[in-house]
């Protein structure tokens, strides 16, 4: 037994030590970045100094946060398989069902490439159409990467606000789609599929298994997005040091009423993950763009993407797709305007 690695032997102790090490590292980053920049032959207070300091502090900070959150979410995800979520949602009514679906969208592992099989699987097991949509909107939009990055760069208030608004859009849009009774706008082959009973297989995962699942998702997700994060922060650093303050205020400030719809429109054809977009968002905000406008832009990039629509077209008739896009766009714009009015 003694040859087993620590996560297997005493998983609780391992998690405690890992968490302590993580916090210590996180605390050390800011002084370390100052120390490093001061070692370089760059004049303090120059634009290059600011850009370098921003880059050297933000890069490890964001990557560390991302790794931490993805690890925790990977472990939580192992409790909520799509099959279990489906069983929880099948037969739920609109209303409560929409709220549950949006919440489960946060914790259920989701990859946009399985959006369609998931969609059909839900409908087949008797999950109402509107409830299915609530899940489908919440799952990509309110994801751990977006939340971790918002938390890291803007603090917990903004992250919580983003989560609350994302959930509200998912609940609202799903509820509206459910009320419109658009079941007959599913492609015929989907409607004609045999109805199945939602069942859940036995879950025999142990805590060490879940830790392993957490590490697996860190390897997979951080391994995939680190380059985007780096590129995004580099762009952000460039804007930080060189572009004058208030540069964006004219186009994306509070007074430009057309900025919200314009940001949403620009966001649709852009298809990147949350990791790639957030550092750019930070730079925009730092230069005077209004928070609501920037959040609307970000939500539109993440939640509405052309490639996903093309795949969804295989199961939804054009009117249902148009309704889906319309309702979500409306929700996002509402969020943008409300934010700009409040903050």
């Amino acid at each position: 037994m003694t040859n087993l690695p620590l996560p297997r032997r005493s998983p609780r102790a391992f998690l405690l030590i890992a968490a302590a090490a993580w916090f210590w590292l996180y605390q050390t980053l800011e002084p370390l970045s100052h120390w490093l920049v001061n070692r370089l032959p760059v004049a303090q207070g120059s634009p290059l100094y600011d850009a370098l300091q921003f880059f050297l502090y933000d890069t490890p900070k964001v990557l560390l946060l991302l790794a931490g959150v993805v690890m925790v979410m990977g472990m939580i995800n192992s409790y909520f398989t799509p099959e279990r979520t489906r069983a929880l949602l099948s037969g739920k009514h609109e209303g409560v069902g929409n709220v549950m679906a949006a919440l489960l969208g946060i914790v259920t592992p989701f990859c946009s490439c399985s959006a369609v099989p998931l969609f059909i699987g839900f409908v087949q097991a008797g999950v109402p159409l509107g409830v299915t949509f609530s899940f489908l909107i919440s799952a990509p939009m309110v994801n751990e990467i977006a939340l971790a990055l918002l938390f890291g760069l803007f603090g917990w208030q903004i992250a919580a606000l983003y989560m609350g608004l994302g959930l509200s859009i998912a609940i609202f849009a799903g509820f509206v789609i459910g009320k419109l009774k658009m079941e007959h706008h599913l492609e015929d082959w989907v409607r004609n599929m045999a109805h199945i009973q939602a069942t859940v297989g036995a879950d025999e995962l142990t805590l060490p298994d879940r830790i392993e699942a957490g590490f697996a998702s860190v390897r997979e997700i951080v391994g995939k997005v680190w380059l985007y994060v780096l590129a995004g922060i580099a762009i952000g650093a460039g804007i930080h040091g060189y572009v004058p303050q208030d540069f964006m205020a004219g186009f994306m400030g509070k007074d430009a009423w057309w900025a919200v719809p314009a940001s949403v429109l620009i966001g649709v054809p852009m298809y990147t993950n949350a990791a790639g977009i957030i550092p750019i968002v930070e730079a925009l905000l730092a230069k005077g763009a209004a928070l609501g406008t920037v959040l609307a832009f970000m939500m539109s990039v993440i939640a509405l993407s052309l490639p996903e629509m093309v795949i969804l077209r295989k199961v939804l008739k054009p009117r249902l797709i148009a309704t889906f896009i319309g309702v979500v766009t409306l929700g996002i714009m509402l969020v943008g305007y409300v934010f700009n009015a409040l903050v």
Binding site: E83, R86, P109, C111, C113, S114, P117, L118, I120, G121
Partner: peptide
């Protein structure tokens, strides 16, 4: 093919 995939009852690919 999506329809064949669904015939196996698989939700996540």
């Amino acid at each position: 093919d999506l329809q064949s995939i669904m015939a196996y009852g698989v939700m996540s690919t």
